[in-house]
Nucleic acid binder design. Sequence first.
DNA 1: CGGAGACCTTGATACAGATCAAAGCCTCAT
DNA 2: ATGAGGCTTTGATCTGTATCAAGGTCTCCG
Lengths: 234, 234
Amino acid sequence: MQTNCLKQGETMFVNVNAHPGSQPKALGQLGELSRARVILSEFKYNKGTEIFGEAEAADYIYQVIDGAVRTHKLLSDGRRQIGAFHLAGDIFGLENGTAHRFTAEAIVDTTVRLMKRCSLEHVAETDALVALDLLNMTTSNLRHAEDHMLLLGRKTSLERVAAFLLEMDRRLTAAGVMALPMSRRDIADYLGLTLETVSRALSHLHGMGILGFLGQTQRQIVLLDRVRLAELDL
Amino acid sequence: MQTNCLKQGETMFVNVNAHPGSQPKALGQLGELSRARVILSEFKYNKGTEIFGEAEAADYIYQVIDGAVRTHKLLSDGRRQIGAFHLAGDIFGLENGTAHRFTAEAIVDTTVRLMKRCSLEHVAETDALVALDLLNMTTSNLRHAEDHMLLLGRKTSLERVAAFLLEMDRRLTAAGVMALPMSRRDIADYLGLTLETVSRALSHLHGMGILGFLGQTQRQIVLLDRVRLAELDL
DNA sequence: CGGAGACCTTGATACAGATCAAAGCCTCAT
DNA sequence: ATGAGGCTTTGATCTGTATCAAGGTCTCCG
């Protein structure tokens, strides 16, 4: 059952909790994937650098150890759509074909754990529980994409920003403060808006007393009224 | 390995080719899922009727035998986003959790084959190849959703309509004619536009000589210049 | 510590697509 | 066949968000 990708004695620790939209961040939490012994190593990417490109061979899958990653698609004239943000604990770059469908970049200095893809495939062919784990991770990505289609197709700018804040609140709030790793432009490209519209929506929510900016930075946000914020996201 | 959902002697025939974006429509093409013997029956739904509702228990998965199905999500005030159209051969209603994430409705009179969900789950737990089949179907849904996010977030109305026509051309053109089962409103709710904008875009393409309407109906479309159409979808 | 460059906010204006409106067309049931 | 009701087109107008523009603020490197 061992594959040619295996290096002796190494084990992959994987969070079942695969992706955007999932809560706990504890690393090392084991899914069934931990039963697959596979090549595993850590790597660091500096802020702004590409981890893999769209249509590149998908040789590895990745787990964020520390930092944040954005995955996007581009149109030929440069318009960009960010599909997801990946925070500590999240797995990304999981493809079923052989090529990546997004470009992935580090938003801030980021450490990732990576795993040779072919190992997983071979293990999954014979181990139904590993395959089910992959299915669960893919399904959680799918659920996120489905919800995001509704947002992109039908929500107003204020609703989109409210939804974004609630998502990030769920995924990265520590000690009541949300320290956003991404810029207004990244948020805009995630929400299908311009950075000016995002900025105006945040200012508006600030003016309504729904959120506060912490200290001297605009990326540290405190949610002051989650109930009213949730009411804004239909 | 038999499950409690099994009825003696019945077999599910499944198209590996699960979903929107896949080409061949031959029914009965076997995936590994055909190895799983499961409850199977056919059912007819009249035009406009609901097949299942969002958040309902997902007791079955479905395959379109004949007809067409739309799956959508609603906002509380009635705004609608159609996630996908399902044509002959497509499988839909496959969920990983226990509840449907979309409402499914028959667009025209439609025949579906259905399969008890719990069977599949039990089989997948022990059969890696069945699990991989489910993974492949889920991945093809995911790919479609990812492409659609780019369309909804960043494309212009003309680009969206061009992309829609190219998708439908790929999926349902017979004898050079595309017989669309869905209304302008359905197309609009799929593309994140209004029905008027869709109508204007189609008229515009007609005026450009890129498409023609067949006979006395607006739902029979002939693509006259696929190259120029493709150039309009960045 | 200081200054260059990136990031963010805010204001003015433009415009793509939404909304409102009306008329024609097709479908289908009687 | 025929007419009622739904679907589609087309036109006029409105509006939310994009675009253009400018100034302020933060960061971080030297």
